[in-house]
Nucleic acid binder design. Structure first.
Lengths: 227, 227
DNA sequence: GCAAAAGTGTTACCACTACACCCATGC
DNA sequence: GCATGGGTGTAGTGGTAACACTTTTGC
């Protein structure tokens, strides 16, 4: 490099969210080293000069969370924001680019990880500025839920409409009218009915539900005009 | 940095937008040094270890654009996103945190700056990845226009309603129905009428307009619920 | 009077809300 | 039958879109 300026360390922190109704959960890992050794925190790594931030976020999940490479490859991951308070890290000036990842609620993944209710972290419960990062991640997800089909990456390819509603309620943190939820998502063309009915496995009564899927495979935003 | 692992340079780039109907304009400055010497580009600086990114963005405007400190102090400025493509800078690995600034269209500011139509930059017209950064800035402004009172920082404290509509149209890049625009913003409580009528200076006919102001001084978002 | 700019009113339409009600299954 | 969960319909409400019309000025 031609520059010799003394510069901050560049790091990446990753917030992985999943939905397990009625909870919205975040992946936290016990820190193996000082500072805050043993405390639960967001996984993160220092950026290497030959990798992008996105690649560093994926590497975080492989190295720190022990997730297999293919699983990381399939994960939805987007840049969240960059956190740079001067004393956010007691070791010295560190600027961290946070990433938001969304995972399906598969029980086998992250067996060693601690999934915590994302909106019930006690104040002072996370080291560094990780509470702020986590709050930004939850806010981002809530915002995107309103005008995109992002919930697609949180649910299996086919699902009951009540599962979907439970996911929405867990993320937004409030109840939604059942009938209107259904009508709106169908009219928007966001989801559509599968042909088949769900097999009656593990159910204890009630009319068998249809299965639904998201109509569009890609992440899409419905632009709503201002006038 | 000799004692640390080799890391990218951390920089800040700033997009300043202003509205001059019918154009949305961005501040570009000729680069004083290589690479791309003489070409118009977004102003930027390398981050210093003792300053925050926000402070670095402000310093950029003082040092590169020559804007007086008080003017920078009053400017609306928010973090946009972080750009980190491996070869975005031919000098070597550089990660840049972009900031979006919004300025009132005061003719005296940035006399040496080149204000360019933000949506009419020819392809390949900007060095580095500055076209991508500029596009992200415009998209952010358009998005916030829909659900916040951010236009407040682009207009003088009191304005004619037609000025406001012209600003919205310049930013969104399309025409808006005059009557509905007025009704909606008033009903939302976003703007309110001043007491006085505008003096008839420099006008060539037509009914004299009222002056309006934004009802809330702070930046506010109107949360619209999903069901 | 006429053009220009500002402001008001009207109507049809559509989306949202809050319900009530019907359907299909297990027990 | 009855509880349970799934699915449908509807009436009231309120916002939106497109348009016509009135008011107040300069010339």
């Amino acid at each position: 490099m031609s520059f010799k300026l003394e510069q901050p360390v560049l790091a990446v922190d990753v917030v992985i969210l999943r939905v397990r109704p009625p909870r919205l959960e975040a992946l936290l890992l016990p820190r193996p080293d000082e500072p805050f050794r043993g405390a639960l925190a967001l996984p993160g790594v220092a950026l290497r000069i030959e990798e992008t931030l996105f690649e560093a976020a994926r590497r975080t999940l492989r190295e720190k969370a022990g997730w297999p490479g293919e699983a990381v490859q399939a994960l939805y991951l987007e840049q969240l924001a960059t956190f740079d308070a001067l004393y956010r890290d007691p070791r010295g000036r560190t600027v961290s680019v946070a990433y938001l990842g969304l995972a399906r609620s598969t029980p086998t993944l992250f067996p060693g990880g601690a999934w915590q209710a994302a909106d019930a972290i006690p104040p002072g419960g996370l080291p560094f500025d990780h509470e702020e990062i986590l709050a930004a991640a939850v806010a981002r997800l809530r915002g995107k839920l309103r005008y995109t089909n992002i919930a697609r990456v949180l649910l299996p390819p086919a699902f009951r409409i009540e599962e979907l509603q439970a996911a929405y309620e867990a993320i937004l943190g409030r109840a939604i009218n059942r009938s209107n939820f259904r009508n709106k998502l169908l009219k928007l063309g966001l989801i559509e009915q599968e042909r088949i009915l769900l097999e009656a496995v593990g159910r204890q009564g009630g009319r068998p539900p249809h299965l639904y899927r998201f109509a569009r495979a890609r992440l899409e935003a419905e632009e709503r005009d201002f006038l």
